[in-house]
Amino acid sequence: MYRFKSFRLISILTAIFLILSSFFRGYVAYGSIENDEIKKIIKQIFVLKSRAILEQDEELMDLIYDRSKKVGQWAFEYEVKKMKYIKNWSEKQGVTFTSITPNIEIKRIRGKDDQYSVYALCSTEYKYVYEDNKDVDNNFRIGTYHIINIKNINGVWTIIKEWYTDPFADSLNLENIKVDSIKEYILAQGSRDLSNISKRRIDAVAYADKYSGAANDISQGLVYNIKYKNMNPQGGDCANFASQILFEGGKFKKNKTWNYDRDGSRAWANAQGFKDYWVGSGRASVIAYGTYDKVFKASYKLLPGDFVAYVKKGRITHISVVTGSDSKGYALVNCHNTDRHRVPWDLGWSNKSIKFYLVRVHF
């Protein structure tokens, strides 16, 4: 699906040097580099990483990381693995990615001279087209939170260490899925008319879009609703966010089991507890359950305001809420940890080791 562009090593080195070296020439003699210059360097590194993923260019990715130590080698290997996953997913889906655009908001910079540590939020917009309908663009955004260490090595700023919670981390192997029949089915679908959904569903989606965190449009602010505790440090905010969507947007009433009062009950804040409550209470019902190849056809029944529960090793580990569909009617979701905004519902999850509950919420 991608046209692999092979660059000669010297050409890539020259290009990166010209792009990045302009930001640090002359600064070593004067001590630390100004923060504005570091911001430019970080943003350009993210642009190059996105380009490497889009073009499936492992050589370019190699030059972004310092692989002389294990932490740099591990970070590089993970990016290559993710790159291959995205290629496999696009083949399964019958799509071509046309652009990957990172938008960076830098929160903190520490360091001096030739080495810096940066904490940044990145809202990355992915655009894709279906191979039989290349005139219609589809897009989604993924938000990530990065701690990234960079160093000037032989005149080029490179990543020596990187940590971030990645949306693809739970499923980086699609080689065990028979993509041909799945692709054929997906390409045979058309767009869905969702204009007749109820106002409560519409309001639920509006809330999900407003508070999609680092996945939001950067001009809208990369924030959660401050009325609620951010539960990512406690293991994840996905169920908490889904509960907010159904309470604040969908106008479902709290009760003794599903409740938030300075903290969330198990049914409110725990992924397994959330699914068990909604299905067990009758407020929702299961449309389908099973591995991706067993449920992907049923996913076209999902409506905005419904939700998907993701099962890993027998336990529900994640919840996302449906917020729309793309040009082929494929369901899109929003969620926290990691932050997603109108993302295809299986992206990052669709190998055979993971199962799904597709759940209809009864508004």
Rank of each mutant, 00 (worst) to 15 (best):
D263I: 06
G305N: 04
Y300M: 11
K107E: 15
I160W: 04
K183L: 02
R200I: 00
E59Y: 14
K251Y: 12
S327N: 07
A120L: 12
N270E: 04
Y116K: 01
L358E: 07
R340W: 13
A214R: 09
V95H: 06
G249C: 03
G72F: 02
I109Q: 00
T158W: 09
I38D: 03
P233E: 05
K81N: 10
L303M: 13
D276V: 01
L48E: 12
D170A: 15
L18T: 12
Y27C: 13
R200E: 01
Q220K: 07
I12G: 04
Y207A: 00
L194Y: 05
E105F: 11
I319H: 02
I186T: 03
G111C: 00
E37G: 14
M1R: 14
T317F: 05
Y126V: 07
D132N: 15
S21R: 08
M83E: 08
D326F: 00
H318I: 07
G329T: 03
K251I: 03
A52I: 06
Y224R: 06
W349A: 12
N270K: 12
R283D: 09
R360D: 11
P233Y: 09
I186R: 03
W89M: 05
N88I: 03
A309H: 02
V295E: 05
Y85D: 12
E184H: 14
K84I: 14
G221P: 07
S320I: 13
W74D: 15
G282A: 02
D203C: 07
V321A: 07
S325M: 11
A206P: 01
S68T: 15
V80T: 05
G264V: 06
A215C: 09
F356V: 11
V286Y: 08
Q44E: 15
V136T: 12
K275F: 05
I33G: 00
N176W: 06
